[in-house]
Design a protein around this nucleic acid. Sequence first.
DNA 1: GCCGTTTTCGGCCCGACTGTTTTCAGTCG
Length: 579
Amino acid sequence: MSANDDIAARLEEFADLLEAQDVDYKPRAYRRAAENVRAHPGDVARLAHGGEDALDEIEGVGDAIASKIVEYVETGEIAELEDLREELPVEMGELTRVEGVGPKTVGTLYEALGITTLEELEAAAAAGEIQEVSGFGAKTEQNILENVEFAREATERELLGEARPRGEGVVDYLAGRPEVERIDLAGSLRRWKETIGDVDVLVATEEGEAVVDAFTDWPGADAVIEAGDQKASVRSGEVRVDLRVVDPSEFGSALQYFTGSKDHNVKIRNVAIDRDLKMNEYGVFDVSDVEDPDADQRAGERIAGETEEGMYEALDMPWMPPELRENWGEIEAARDGDLPDLIDEGDVRGDLHVHTNWSDGDYTVAEMVEGAASFGHDYLAITDHATGPGMVGGVGVPDDELREQIEEVRAVAEEADIPVFTGVEANISTDGEISVDDDVLTELDVVVASPHAGLDGDGTDRLVAAVEHPEVDIIGHPTGRYINQRSGLDVDVERLAEAAADNDTALEINANPARLDLGGGAVKTAVEAGATIAINTDAHQPASYDLVRYGVHTARRGWAEETDVLNTRDVEGLREFLE
DNA sequence: GCCGTTTTCGGCCCGACTGTTTTCAGTCG
């Protein structure tokens, strides 16, 4: 949790506790402040060290909240929040995670039954005590009982690699229905963000009810959360899947709106306002002759909304791929005609980081090669783990065995349908040493060097040392992070990328959905610094070759073009780089 | 509690859905 998230969480708890006590308006003020603290590009804690006045620049933070932020940063506590917690000693965060339970419900149930924790909530529901409380009934009690377990489990955002197949499953299931005129994923899933809060599906149809009925019958749905005629939600595994139904004439505007990101939409809405236009989920409206544009969501003359392309065109901008919509400069670039020509899924021609049963893979060299050929790759590099820091239990291949493997790979290559490169995934020690002897490295075609141990603290010096090693071609999963599990090394990506560009060493996007390392933001920095990117799957079995798409879309989130990526080159181009 | 101003008070986003209510409150996105 970053420091900003930490401060925002206190403010949100403040809001919840006030709301539970039926306080009006203040909760909204605290929520708004929390949201803006969370979204603030700089370190709010550092800002707070400059005193309350320095916090002025954050929207929604006035004198009262500013002094609380300063108090929190300086003492680690907010006295008033401690008081509120004493008055209402509940586990607000975990209780409100239960679907359908908000701050007011928490407050009421504490007053009536003294419920403070998830366990107590579950016990009270099971004992039938909740339906006795005024305002509650048997149905509510049942819902709470069903949702407690889910609240306990679903504490993390789902990995893209799990959410994406789930979302595509819903879309495939609904797309064939005659009532569905258009359908698409929206939200962070459409932007291919590395983790997903929920799955958003948007459908254009004249017959909402029929679509909702079909949706709630989707075999992937474990439970129906709600179902109306314009929207419905189901629970699928650990995530919530939201369906929205709109009139076909509003599909483009709704898709633009629900794809986000929020920051992108705020920015683009302001572009609209500057042009006397109004932009929302219903379209783009010319409000130059309208007295009060805010009076009606559909006020003014509608000039776009049926297609997403039309929405952007109405603002004199080209349509832009969802991966770019993070307010990382794409709106300025679109206005200047400088949008990147992003790499596409079909552009990657080979995999330069895969494992076999020589190390921790499950398949032989021949099987991995055959798999790559039938996947459609033009070439493949075999890069098993070397011994060294991080390789325990005999996983790594010692230098003398690597020499033997070179012979086997060459033998397989003679029979193979595609060129096969010899290689290794060597380890980068904490002081930047490469764990394989130089004599062996020079014999290999492709040397991937990756950090596997000591994955905390600043890793920039260590990685730069590896980049400068003359035999290293690619830095594998540079930070070593595992999403939702460990954050990996802190890396000054700009400095790393500049070194990589100077030394003709590529930086990997490891396409494994648990890694996506480098991530989108880092890729953007690396590309801007002129570094070459390699998109590899780190496959341990042929079935993993198709994970490459997660790498490609991560590259797109980092504004990478085909020419920025090493393994979009043909074999000759690749050989040139390796030499 | 914040903000903007018709500038020190008065208003604060909103629509869909559910459940418990008999006209609405709470939750969610």
